[in-house]
Each structure stands twice: as structure tokens, then as C-alpha cells.
Design a binder for these strands. Structure first.
Length: 500
RNA sequence: GGACGUGUACUCAAGUGGCUAAGAGGAUGGAUUGCAAAUCCUUUAUUCGGGAGUUCGAAUCUCUCCACGUCCUCCA
């Protein structure tokens, strides 16, 4: 019973209680990147969002098979019939590389970025080019079921026929099928298709096209959308639990994916569809052509006109957690600055908490009950459609209580040993396991203790100076360390330090 | 033009019918401090884009107007 949670389903536009197909197990498919260029910051938000969802499902005790694909063929620029080119094929031609070199290069970069953001790797990361045979098989199944037709070596999905046989088409994205039917006159540049809304599932390769495979219809390559239908079916079954992706994939990608799966197996691919919302910058979509854009690297280094300084990957991850995955998130310098301070406050409170000992109170005190209540609420928020901002808010309400226990404003006699232990466990689980944050402070990353030893010596010398009212020396130590971005914190029980 | 969505304090951002509208940052006053920083305690939206309606009751539902965003071509 403890693993129950609610999830917003894009198909029904409602929050629903989650019911797995197989008790205790979850199959989740998330549309991964098309690896033809460096990973976009917006991609990072989507994958961080699904990383938190994945982590929370694991926390709830589910056995999760998390499949996130790499699209390395078939993703066209523009329309197939107007001479458009496969994105990867084009990049390979322009840079005089093998298409697989392009794919490898950007896949490596993508993996590196996911590591930087501390996103867990998926259980399976299948590539479209590794599943050409399966894709050809699915095209054949769709043809056999009468939902696709071949023209000049290319195969198109018959959206009109599908829409008439089934009410599934357009349901996810809110497209009205009647509107599709009305636009039948507009057939320019679409000579091969019966209808403009039809889409290619197998494309005959022109002679210059670099990526090509044999098929019953032509030497060619699979259409975009198809790889996700095929690989989700192969690794998760014809119908699985959760399908995710960015909001902008709803149409046409996901709509067509659903159509293909129905066309092949006459069943719906996923029970729950979840979509993450867009990352904006200064209120607008990030767009390279408008200059309203920033790369992850620029964000880390601060080398951009849009920000005043660099922000670490964990600060950015924390910043993302402060909004809900279904809301747009506006990236601004002020918001990042605020996020950086919030992240540090949380991590420092966590350090303080882990050092608290000797709670001697009973579980009957108001204070003890309040702590437990906040902890419970934090988990309840996560179970209500993965509401990370709400859960974080509850953690932040606990922060002054933790600091108060350390400073002596609050008493360890008012909290029970069990509750203190639970509080520690809660922070640990939320920060590291669920939110996937890492401690970036120097104290945490400096494992050999040299830094600690030096700092203890310096703090000791300054303490002596202060005892002798030698403010000149003590302030010089403090100010010089400040210039090195090391902050000293004078507390009741001594001085601690933190590196900015 | 069509589809979907958003508009909450100085900024970011929760909340989708009912106690005093979360949280972070900022600002403010106080405690603490040798002075600071950090920390703790206050204060900071009688109000949720404008207007009308439904309801005992709405930021939350309906209508309308305004503004913005995303998609409809490639995008997470």
C-alpha cells in the first residue's frame, strides 16, 4: 500500500492513481535524444525530470525497467517529400564523417552531460539503427493490417483510414480528425501521400543518402516515430505502464507512435503518458536563431551574456527541482542566483543535521509531532504527481528547526531519538536518492583530509587571536579567506567553514 | 488561422472549491557577534491579469476581454 502514487496522464488530462500492469513492476519508456548535435539544455531538463521520477519509483520499491532510446536514424529535417534530409546523414555529409561517427560523438557527449547532471543511466538504451529488422517487421505488420500503403518504394501510414477505424488518433494532442479531413486539397509537395497527414514509416533512400538498408520495398531507412514504437514494444511489451517525453513531442511524434502501435498490434502502447514542459529563458523559448539560447557549458562557465556568473550542475539541477515538471520553467540569472543560495542552505543544513546527536525527548512533544508531520507531507507531495517543489518546501521548513537544534534555540530534549534518526534518513533519501543532488562543497570532495587539517589550524590560530582581542589578526584571516571564497561561520560551539 | 497551455508578492515558484494563499531568493526590524558573516525570530500578496457569472463559499468552476507561451515544419 505504501507504494501508491498519483500520476498525471496526458491522455485523460487528469491526475490518476497509478496501477501497474504487473504488481510491483513498472515499464517506463522515455523518448531520448536524436544525436545529431550537442545536447540542448532543454533536453537536460526533461531527462532530469524523468530521472527524478525514475528515482522516486525506485524509492517506492518498484522494479523499474527504464528504457530511453537513442535516435540515430530517420529523423528528417523538413518533410520527406520536399527533398528533406535525415539529420544525421546531413551532419555526416557536411563534416565528412561516417554517420556512425556523428552518432558516437554526440552520444558520448550526451552521456557525459547526463553524468554531470547526475542522472542515472536507463536500464536499456536502445538505438534505432540496432533495430532495423524489427522496424521492417513492424512496417510489414502495419501493411498487413491495412493501415499503410507503399508508393515508389516508400511506405506511408494511412492516417485517414486509421482515424476512421478508431478514435485513438488525435486523442493525445487534441487534434481534431475532421480538420485533417478538410485539408485534403492541399497536396502540394506531397505527391506520394494519399493525404497530407499521412506520414512515412519507410523511406526510399535517394542515391546520395548515406544511411540505407535493404527492405522488401526499397533500399531505404525507417521513418522517425517508428523506432520508439518498435523498441518500446520489444523491451517493454505491446502495452506498458508509462511513456514519457517532452511536451513538444506530443504531436506529431507521440500521436504517430500511438497510431503505429495500434496499426501493428491493435492495442495502445502505454497506459500513462507523461510530458515535461519546456524550459524557457527570459520568458521565451530557447532558440539559437534568436540568440535566446545558452548551452550547458556556457551555463557552467558563465561565458554568456545572459548570466552574470557560472552555475554548477547541481545548482541547475536544484533550480529545476524548484518547479514542477509539467510547468514551464523560466531560466533567468536572478532565479539561478536564488537557486544557488537555496541549494547551499539545504546542503549545509544537511551537514548540520548529520552531526546532531543525543536526542532525548519523547515522541509526544508538539515539536516531535511537527517534524514527523513535515516529513510525511514531503513524501505525500512526491506521491502526488512527483511534486518536487512542494516536497522541497517541506524540507526547507525543517531547515530552521535543524539549525535551531544546533544553535540551541531548540532543544534536543524535545525530539525523540527515533525522530531525529528518521529526520536524518529523510534528508539523506530526499537529497541524494530522490532529488539526485550531490554535495559539491570542497569539504565533501576533498577526501584526503589535507584541507580539513589546514583549516583547523587556521581556525585555531584565529581563535587564539580573538581570545587576545587581536582583531587585526583575526579579521585578516577572515577577510583573506573570504577572498578565497572560504567562509568562516562562528557558532556557539566553535567555528566551521564552507567553500563557496 | 487551428490546438493546447499560462498569467499568483520585487524575482523564481507551489497551490485547481472551504482554516491566517507553500517554499526559495530579495528587502525589513530584532536576537546573536568584538565588528561582520552564518544562524534564529519578526515583517513583506485581505489578494491571485481585467470584468461578469455559478456557489453558503473561488486564485481554483463558467463566460468574456487583455497579455504571453508552446505546438500545428525540426525540437525535450
Amino acid at each position: 500500500m505504501e507504494n501508491k502514487f498519483n500520476i498525471y496522464n496526458s491522455l485523460t488530462r487528469k491526475k490518476e492513481a497509478f496501477n501497474p500492469i504487473i504488481e510491483g513492476r513498472i515499464g517506463m519508456y522515455v523518448c531520448g535524444p536524436t544525436v545529431y548535435s550537442d545536447v540542448h539544455l532543454g533536453n537536460c531538463r526533461t531527462f532530469v525530470s524523468f530521472d527524478v521520477i525514475y528515482r522516486y519509483l525506485l524509492h517506492l520499491g518498484y522494479t523499474v525497467r527504464y528504457v530511453r532510446n537513442i535516435t540515430d536514424v530517420g529523423h528528417l529535417e523538413g518533410d520527406a517529400d520536399s527533398g528533406a534530409e535525415d539529420k544525421i546523414s546531413k551532419k555526416a555529409r557536411l563534416e565528412q564523417l561516417e554517420p556512425m561517427e556523428v552518432v558516437q560523438h554526440y552520444t558520448n557527449g550526451f552521456h557525459k552531460m547526463m553524468q554531470i547532471f547526475n542522472a542515472l543511466p536507463p536500464s536499456i538504451e536502445p538505438r534505432a539503427t540496432g533495430h532495423i529488422i524489427e522496424q521492417i517487421e513492424m512496417v510489414q505488420e502495419i501493411i498487413d493490417n491495412g493501415f499503410a500503403y507503399e508508393k515508389n518504394g516508400s511506405v506511408y501510414f494511412d492516417t485517414i483510414k486509421f482515424a476512421k477505424s478508431n478514435d485513438a488518433y488525435g486523442k493525445l494532442s487534441g487534434r481534431v480528425i475532421d480538420d485533417l479531413l478538410v485539408e485534403t486539397r492541399d497536396l502540394k509537395n506531397q505527391a506520394e501521400k494519399n493525404h497530407p497527414s499521412d506520414f512515412a514509416i519507410w523511406i526510399k533512400a535517394d542515391p546520395s543518402h548515406l544511411m540505407r538498408w535493404n527492405s522488401p520495398w526499397s533500399v531505404g531507412f525507417p521513418g522517425w516515430h517508428l523506432e520508439c514504437s518498435v523498441m518500446s514494444t520489444k523491451y517493454l511489451g505491446k502495452t506498458f505502464d508509462i511513456h514519457g517525453g517532452g511536451n513538444d513531442l506530443k504531436f506529431p511524434h507521440h500521436e504517430n507512435e500511438i497510431a503505429q502501435n495500434f496499426g501493428a498490434c491493435k492495442c495502445a502502447p502505454a497506459n500513462y503518458w507523461t510530458h515535461t514542459n519546456m524550459l524557457l529563458m527570459n520568458g521565451k523559448k530557447m532558440s539559437k536563431s534568436d540568440g535566446n539560447s545558452i548551452t550547458p557549458e556556457e551555463l557552467f562557465t558563465g561565458n554568456s551574456e545572459h548570466i552574470s556568473k557560472g552555475y554548477s550542475p547541481m545548482v541547475i539541477r536544484f533550480f529545476m527541482l524548484q518547479s514542477h515538471y509539467r510547468s514551464t520553467l523560466d531560466l533567468t540569472d536572478a532565479a539561478l542566483l536564488a537557486g544557488e543560495k537555496g541549494y547551499r542552505r539545504l546542503m549545509e543544513a544537511n551537514d548540520v543535521l548529520m552531526k546532531l546527536e543525543n536526542a532525548t525527548g519523547s515522541t509526544d512533544t508538539e515539536f516531535d509531532k511537527e517534524i514527523n508531520s513535515l516529513i510525511n507531507q514531503a513524501f505525500e507531495h512526491m506521491s502526488d504527481d512527483f511534486n518536487t517543489p512542494m516536497a522541497l518546501a517541506r524540507l526547507f521548513e525543517l531547515v530552521p528547526k535543524i539549525n535551531g537544534l544546533k544553535d540551541g534555540h531548540l532543544s534536543l530534549t524535545d525530539i525523540s531519538a527515533d525522530t531525529l534518526k528518521r529526520l536524518k534518513e529523510t534528508f539523506k533519501v530526499f537529497i541524494y536518492d530522490i532529488f539526485g543532488l550531490k554535495d559539491e562543497s570542497l569539504a565533501a570532495t576533498n577526501g584526503n583530509g589535507t584541507m580539513d587539517g589546514l583549516m583547523n589550524l587556521i581556525i585555531d590560530i584565529r581563535q587564539s587571536a580573538r581570545a587576545n582581542k587581536d582583531w587585526g589578526t583575526s579579521d585578516k584571516i577572515r577577510d583573506t579567506l573570504n577572498e578565497l571564497k572560504i567562509l568562516l561561520k562562528d557558532g556557539k560551539d566553535g567555528t566551521s567553514w564552507v567553500k563557496e
